[in-house]
């Protein structure tokens, strides 16, 4: 496919146009602290989107990851508070593993019941949220109780700038974590057989097993990675906002799926890329966060996001039909 026809190029162009447009309405858009803020808001959605990307390439869909993220985050923080543990690395490992295990449960149900992933993941999401809130607790662990090391970790900046008036702002180092994960997923998708098996399975599940892929492994990989990334992102989120709310991430799946679709991944499987997803996430977050800059009431946020989803999918559908016809 030529560079110009790639979905990534189109998203990039739309993104550029949107940036120019917003910057034109309000030049404050281009200020460094706004840009840094934007990048920071990308991190959590973006990490989860990477997981959803894998699932979508395999031809599935996952709406359970926000529940998994909440569970991994809350369980880990809860555990830290209970035991008084002060480290940072191990909690992140634990959160990731919780997400991974839950993802494995998804993969098992989808494989064993041969049920469409949307329904299965709706079910697992409900199970996990119910268990978390019903058994573990509903109270928010706020800044007073949050392990300080976690907060400190979340506050790590890689660039620190002091305004002339003395206020300081910085670019969070978490963007490096996000970047590293994105690079990792990209490399896996592009240069490993398990990554290629996702594309093969998403393109044609039957052919994939005929040529000799272990399709069980493929599914397991997709949903486990999605779960693991969600678990990791969940805890990271808590350390960024300094509180752990077991009811967090409700409705998050809509934004993340929208971002991945915006980034050119096909809901039918077999297509999608990390670069496209990064761009899709950035576009979505940017438009959501820039409404104030554009002097539009923030209550319009959801309407705008919905309209973007409808328009972009309508365009994709129109393009696909033209290609066939």
């Amino acid at each position: 496919m030529s560079l110009l026809r790639r979905p990534e190029t189109i998203v990039a162009l739309v993104l550029l146009a949107a940036m120019l447009g917003i910057g034109f309405v309000n030049p404050a858009f281009w200020s460094l602290d706004n840009q840094f803020g934007l990048l920071k808001s990308n991190v959590i959605t973006g990490i989860m989107a990477l997981g959803v990307l894998l699932v979508m390439i395999s031809g599935g869909i996952d709406v359970s990851f926000p529940a998994f993220a909440a569970a991994a985050m809350y369980l880990t923080v809860h555990g830290m508070v209970q035991t008084g543990y002060t480290g940072v690395a191990i909690p992140f490992v634990v959160a990731t593993l919780i997400g991974l295990a839950l993802g494995a449960f998804n993969a098992f149900c989808i494989r064993a019941f041969r049920m469409i992933p949307l329904i299965v993941t709706l079910g697992t999401a409900s199970v996990v949220r119910g268990l978390l809130l019903g058994l573990v607790g509903t109270s928010v662990i706020n800044i007073n109780k949050m392990p300080p090391q976690l907060i400190e970790f979340g506050r790590t900046d890689m660039i620190d700038i002091t305004h002339t008036d003395g206020t300081r702002f910085g670019l969070t180092a978490m963007i490096l974590v996000y970047g590293a994960l994105a690079l990792g997923v990209h490399l896996v998708l592009r240069y490993t057989m398990i990554g290629r098996s996702l594309y093969a399975y998403g393109g044609s599940p039957e052919s994939a097993s005929r040529v000799g892929f272990d399709t069980r492994k493929t599914l397991l990989f997709a949903y486990c990675t999605a779960g693991a990334l969600a678990g990791f992102a969940g805890l990271l989120h808590a350390s960024l906002i300094w509180l752990a709310n077991p009811r967090d991430f409700v409705g998050f799946e809509l934004d993340v799926i929208a971002a991945v679709v915006l980034g050119g991944a096909s809901i039918f499987g077999g297509r999608g890329s990390v670069v496209g997803t990064l761009l899709g996430v950035f576009l979505l977050i940017m438009i959501k966060n820039s409404l104030i800059l554009m002097h539009i009431d923030t209550t319009w946020q959801q309407v705008v996001v919905g309209a973007i989803i409808v328009c972009s999918t309508a365009l994709t559908a129109w393009r696909d039909r033209k290609r066939v016809g």
């Binding site: 240069y191 490993t192 398990i194 990554g195 093969a200 393109g203 052919s207 040529v211 077999g270 297509r271």
Partner: peptide
Amino acid sequence: SLFGNLSVAENLAMNRYLKEGRRAVRW
């Protein structure tokens, strides 16, 4: 049983990689 969403090259090389139990892809 081909993969329409993948390139000709990859369709052709995939069997070899699978047979050799490779984990990495060299383009």
